[in-house]
Amino acid sequence: MAFREGMRDSIPIALCYLAVSFSIGIIAANGGVSAMQGFFTSFFCMASAGEYIGFTLIAAQATYTEVALMTLIANARYLLMSAAWSQRMNPSLSIGHRMLMALDLTDELFAIAIARKGYLNPLYSYGAALFPAICWASGTALGCIAGDILPSRIVSALSVSLYGMFIAIIIPPAKENRIVAYIIVACFILSAAATYLPLLSSLSSGTRIILLTVIISAAAALLFPRKPETEIPQ
C-alpha cells in the first residue's frame, strides 16, 4: 500500500521532472552525450544541478578531477538531506534498504517522504521514485535528440525550464528567511561580476561556480551561523 501511495504522490513531481530534464538533455547533447548515455546518467544520478554542471564540464573537456569535485559541490546538499533522512529511519532498517533508498534522494522526493509521520517507509520511497526516475531519464534522452530536431525557438524556450526550477527552489526559503534572501541577491551580483569582469571572466564556468559556492557559503556560515536544530532545509 505504501508503495502505491508513493506512486500517487509522485505524479506531479514526475511531470515536472519530464519538463526540466529536457533542458538537461539539450546541455548534455552539447557535450557530445548520446541519448542512451543521457538516459543512463540521468537514471542513476537524478540530480538537476549536479548533472547540469557535469554535462557543462564534459562539453568543456574538463579534467576528471574537476568533474568529481564539482559533482561533489553541486550535490553537497544531499549530504545534509541524507543525514536528515538517517535521523528518521528505523535504527534496525537493513543496510540494503538504506543503500537503495539513497539512489533517489532528490529535493522533491526528500520533501514528500519527510512530510509523512513516523519512521520513513522504504516501500513508500520506492513507489515515489519510480515515475520520477523514468520521466527524468526519458526527458534527458528526448532533450539529447530534440536539440537537433526541434525548431531553435522551442529549444531556446525549453532551455530556461531548468532555471525556472532552480528559481522555484531558492525563492520560497528566501521569503521565509531574510538572510537567505540577501545571500541570494549577493550571489546573483557576485556571479554576474565574476562572469563579466575582465580578469575573473577568464575562469571556466565550472571553476567559477566552485569558487563562488565555497567562498559565499563559508562567508555566510561565519557571518550568520545557524543553530544545529535548524539544519534541515524546507
Binding site: A49, Y52, I53, I73, A74, A76, R77, L79, L80, D107, Y163, F166, I167, I169, I170, P173, A174, V180, I183, I184, C187, F188, L190, S191, R208, I209, L212, T213, I216, S217, A218, A220, A221, F224, P225, R226, P228, T230, E231, P233
Partner: peptide
Amino acid sequence: TSFLYYVPYVTLSVMT
C-alpha cells in the same frame, strides 16, 4: 551545519 545549509541556495543562485 551552517555551511551545508547555505550551499544549495548559493550553488543554485550562482548557476541561475
